[in-house]
Design a protein around this nucleic acid. Structure first.
Lengths: 121, 121
DNA sequence: TATGGAGCTAACAAAAGTGTAAGTATGAGC
DNA sequence: GCTCATACTTACACTTTTGTTAGCTCCATA
């Protein structure tokens, strides 16, 4: 998750498209490898780092940290630190993050249909 | 768009997640940089290569070809070649591709809301 | 003393995605 | 013969994302 080079036309194109189309803007907000999964789990309520990690078996500490940070930056989740020992950190969907839930459900329905079509072949 | 290495845990993780969650499977189907944009334009009807290219100002021939091929593989669009001179090629959404349109519209609505929130700040 | 859990962080490496520049085949029109 | 348009293809380089490995801090408990 290095800094984006200012000379990148790749990024330039992304921004152009995002500026024109909110649907592309939206899809870019959720296209991290674990983003949608995390949204799903947090849809059911607050969760701690370790709890999320258990739900995402193959994820590493690093990836989970990065994803959560990115999602926080994007305003999808909020992060609350409890100064206990050991530290406790809770993640939770923001209001706009919650509004994403029905959209993800639509995606899920469509995904199932698409999968059914392709499993037949 | 090189071949995926079979040793890649990156890809392995993707498949694990996709197998469990149709919503992740779905989101992976639409996360090419130009995929959603192309779906939008084709939602209105068939289009030729050159017409799509005009609509996506910053795209190169190569990227458009790659995107269209990937979308064809994924069953989102179909490709019809007319053996004229010069060749004519038409792209069109498949039925399952069409069913994606309302989902994208949902994404669009959510994207606008999210954007509005962040533009204020 | 050391062991352990929670939630990270840093340095590095690999993979996937995207962009650049150049080229192809075809036949029509000049 | 030369150029034009369409819809690609190839070889290469760059950017971004993801993974590997190893660490760290805090204090409680054994």
């Amino acid at each position: 998750m290095s800094k984006i080079k200012p000379t990148s036309t790749h990024d330039e194109n992304k921004r152009l498209l995002e500026a024109e189309c909110p649907e592309i803007y939206a899809s870019n907000l959720i296209n991290g490898q674990w983003t949608v999964a995390i949204c799903c789990y947090l849809g059911a309520g607050k969760m701690r780092f370790a709890a999320l990690k258990k739900k995402l078996p193959a994820i590493t500490d690093r990836m989970l940290t990065l994803e959560l940070r990115k999602m926080e930056e994007k305003g999808l989740i909020s992060r609350t630190i409890f100064a206990e020992v050991p530290v406790r950190v809770e993640y939770e969907l923001t209001p706009i993050g919650h509004e994403l839930t029905p959209v993800i459900q639509q995606l899920e329905i469509w995904g199932k249909k698409h999968k059914a079509l392709f499993d037949k072949q």
